[in-house]
Write a protein that binds this DNA or RNA. Structure first.
Lengths: 222, 222
DNA sequence: CGTGTAGAAATTATAGATAATTTGAGATCA
DNA sequence: TGATCTCAAATTATCTATAATTTCTACACG
C-alpha cells in the first residue's frame, strides 16, 4: 500500500547504500557482498547487482571483475580532484544560471545559507550547503551538468563526514553571502569567480588544533 | 580459449551497445528490449540489465522505471551542454598535465593529429581526434576526471556521426597544431585557452552548403 | 466514438546452477 | 622448527532458467 512503487527495487537499494557510503557507515575498502546485502533487504541478488553498477558509476564503489565490489577508497589526491572538478563545473553552471536568476531564487538561497550557519551538526550543515549550491545552479537547466555536479557533491560529502566525524563547530559561510550579494548586484562573473575559489581546493594554511590537524585540510570543502 | 575473460559479460555487452549507439546504428529513441539483446548475445537478460545500467550512467540510454530502456535522444541544447562541459574539464586536465608533458608525449600527439588529417572517413578521424586529446590529457593522472571526459567524448562522437553520416571531407586541424606548438614553447596557459575555444561551442558561422546546412552547426566539435 | 476488458509482450524479481577465487590444512623442503 | 607449496573445501560472483507484476494493444460493447 504505502510502498513507493514509483521506483525500482534496485534504485532503492542503491540509494540506501550510497547514503551509508557517504555518511561513513560503510568505510572505504569495505567489501560489499551481494548475498548479504540481498538478505538484509529481503531481496534477491540481481537487483543488488544493478545497485552496485549504479554505485560504481557514481564513483562510490569499485568493482574488480570476478572478485567483488568494495567501497571506493579515497585519498587526499582524489579530494583535490573532486574539488577542482566541482569548481570547474559549478562555475560553468553558474554562468548559465545567472540570466535566469530571480530575486525569489536568491531569497531561497539566502535561507539555505542561514540554515547552514545555524546548523549544529555536520549532517544538517552539509544538507543546507548542498541546497545552497543546487538552488543557484539549477536555473542553468543543463540536466547532464547538474547530474555530474550532484555526484561530485556526494563525493565531497564523504570527505567532509570522514574528517568531521566526531568534532564539529558551526561556521558561518562568508563566501555564500559574498556570492549572493554579487548576484544581487548583477555581477555574475564576480560571483562565478568567488564560487570557483570557494569550491576549489585552497588548503594552503593548515591550522594546528589540539584535537587533530587533519581536519583543517578538509575544512575548506564548501 | 581466446575469449577475453578479463572482463565480465555485462561489460562486453555494454561496450558493444555503446559502440552502436555512438555510431548511430541504434538511432535515438530506439527501444532496447532486454530479451532481444540477450538472445542476440546468446545470454540471459540479467547481464543485459546490468549493461543497461552502465549505458544509463554514461548518458547513452534513458530508462523509465517499468517501461523499458531507450537510446537517449539528443537535441542541439544537449550538444552545447556536452561541448561546454568538455571545454571546462579538458582545460582543467590540461593545466594539470602540462608539468608532466614530455617531448615524446607531444610527438605521439603530433602523430595522432597527422593521422586525423589524413583520415578519409569520420570513424577514423574521430578515433584519431580522441587519441590526440587523450594523449595530451592523460599525464594529469586524475582518473575520475579522465573518465568523465571519456564519457563526454562518447557523447560528442554521437553528434559527430549523426551529422556527418553520409558526406565527409577530410579537414586539417589547425587548433591541434597550435596547441602543440604552444605546449612545446612551454606556454601552458595559452595551450589551455586554445583548447577551451577548440572544444567549446563556437557554431557562430553557419556556412551554407548545397548538400545540407545542418552539418555546419556540428562541424566545430573537436 | 469513447470506454472497458481480455490477451500479449515486456520488465522486474526469485531461485537455482556454474565457475572462479579465496582460504586453510597438511605435507614437503630448507 | 619454520616456511612454503599443494590441493581440497568453502565462499562468492556470475549467469541461466523460471515465475510474477505491470504495461501495451486490440477488440468488443455501450
Amino acid at each position: 500500500m504505502n510502498k513507493e512503487r514509483d521506483d525500482t527495487l534496485a534504485s532503492r537499494i542503491s540509494r540506501v547504500l550510497a547514503e551509508r557510503i557517504i555518511s561513513g557507515v560503510l568505510p572505504p575498502g569495505e567489501r560489499l557482498r551481494q548475498d548479504h546485502v540481498a538478505e538484509e533487504f529481503g531481496a534477491s541478488h540481481v537487483p543488488v547487482r544493478e545497485a552496485f553498477r549504479r554505485l560504481e558509476a557514481q564513483g562510490l564503489a569499485v568493482s574488480e571483475p570476478r572478485r567483488g565490489v568494495r567501497v571506493a577508497a579515497f585519498d587526499l589526491k582524489e579530494v583535490r580532484e573532486v574539488a577542482e572538478m566541482r569548481a570547474a563545473l559549478e562555475v560553468l553552471a553558474l554562468r548559465h544560471a545567472v540570466p535566469h536568476l530571480t530575486p525569489a531564487i536568491l531569497d531561497r538561497a539566502e535561507a539555505a545559507t542561514a540554515a547552514a550557519d545555524s546548523s549544529r551538526d555536520v549532517r544538517s550543515w552539509e544538507a543546507a550547503n548542498r541546497a545552497f549550491h543546487r538552488i543557484i545552479l539549477e536555473p542553468c537547466s543543463m540536466p547532464r551538468l547538474l547530474a555530474a555536479i550532484d555526484d561530485l557533491h556526494a563525493a565531497s560529502a564523504r570527505f567532509l563526514f570522514s574528517a568531521w566525524r566526531s568534532s564539529w563547530e558551526a561556521r558561518t559561510d562568508h563566501d555564500h553571502r559574498a556570492i549572493l550579494t554579487a548576484l544581487r548586484q548583477g555581477k555574475g562573473e564576480e560571483a562565478a569567480a568567488i564560487l570557483g575559489r570557494h569550491v576549489g581546493w585552497i588548503g594552503k594554511t593548515p591550522v594546528r588544533t589540539a584535537a587533530g590537524e587533519v581536519r583543517d585540510a578538509f575544512s575548506i570543502i564548501g
